[in-house]
Write a protein that binds this DNA or RNA. Sequence first.
DNA 1: CGACGGGACGC
DNA 2: CGACGGGACGC
Length: 456
Amino acid sequence: MEEYNRPSSYLDDPPNSRLFLVTSKSITEDIIRERFCPFGEIQDIWVVKDKQTKESKGVSFVKFAKSSQACNAMEEMHGKCVAEGTKPIKVFIAQSRSSGSHRDVEDEELTRIFVMIPKTFTEDDLKETFKTYGDIEYAIIIKNKSTGESKGLGYVRYHKPSQAAKAIENCDKTFRAILAEPRTKNASVDNDYFSNQRSDHAGNEPGLSVYPFGAESSSYTAGEGWNSEMITRCLMVSSRMPVVQEQIYSLFDLIPGMEYCEMQRDQYGFSKGQAMIRYSNLGSAVYAREKLNGFEYPPGNRLSVTFIDDGEDRTSPVGKMAMQLVAAQMMSMVWNGPSGAQLMKTSAGYATPSMPQKPRVQTDVVLPSHKKLASSDSVVKERLFVIFNPTPLPVDILEDVFCRFGSLVEVYLVPGRNVGYIKSCSLIHLKRSLTRGRELTDASPRLVKRLSDMTH
DNA sequence: CGACGGGACGC
DNA sequence: CGACGGGACGC
């Protein structure tokens, strides 16, 4: 095959050390250098320009010496405005030149490492060893299914790409840490159930008894892909940054069916950065886990959401199928509107402060707090273009949603069309998760199909 | 929407 | 015997 003996900036050597930037065309190499040099050793900056006109195409590549530097720069600079009057930049790890793909490299592919470990290692050992490089979302060991013995291989999922990169760069070589290949997407049940199923009534959940959570938070198995993991009505939410119960409550209450929410506290009453959530049914819990695990709340703080044992045995194949059915029915209820969803609400909540009512907004997108509208004569700084599918939502709903992202001036729907404009007199800060990846594309089919910044 | 230049490897 | 090197997730 081909051989490459070229400077490391030619290829992505080391892997994932090169950034792909999308910027306004006026952004120059000098501006990029100035804004990106704090993150590490820049080996190359290349602003792609039109061959004839020499005008920037609004695309640049920044090569760092290390992947962790590139990842950190990405995490810090994505969505930032680097020059007065220009649009926020997008920052991704560049696809390697040999791949030929131009698909965005997702955080999902950059946060999980694959390591070789002593057979004697427990998952706690694994966690302990690798937590020095960043907060671990979960650590699992591959085991022989029948004997349960370790195969000496493990996965560690971090919250941020820079943490995984640091682990790979700095951990002992004997671990042979590399980025894990994403698990083969057997796009099967997951997407099919969540996006296509439309059944019209919810099945009745078999009544659940009590909630004997494991004595400590250790009794849960963390993992990805709900179809292959323990599924329960109970979730454990972990946060690195301090969050208060009201925040967690309002977040998880966006999914109908929450009946219990409580922060975990130590014996002195200090928060352990974890909360337990219980839903009235499996579908809600599955959906909450699917949508909120890894969500940045507040921005920059990835929440970790895992199922914890609720004492039910659902290991039989029949039980699994039943769960999938329930989950599918839950999905359709959420997406078919509030009327169905309200049926799922229970009044069983306790230890839960009463929250301001948001009667009509039903979305799985996590929203910042409600803010007052700006006066209608304010100068419009930024506009969002919103495409609805299948039809626009009521203006009052849109106001309720979009006032949270900036200083909202006006929601305008183009009469007779499925599009509208959101005007704001402040910069509208859409989180990373809303401008890339599936949070936006499949989160809320009824609400926002696509957003793009348009400055006029 | 928003993706690949200039210059050079080294027994 | 010990060092080396190897390496993948229940659908």
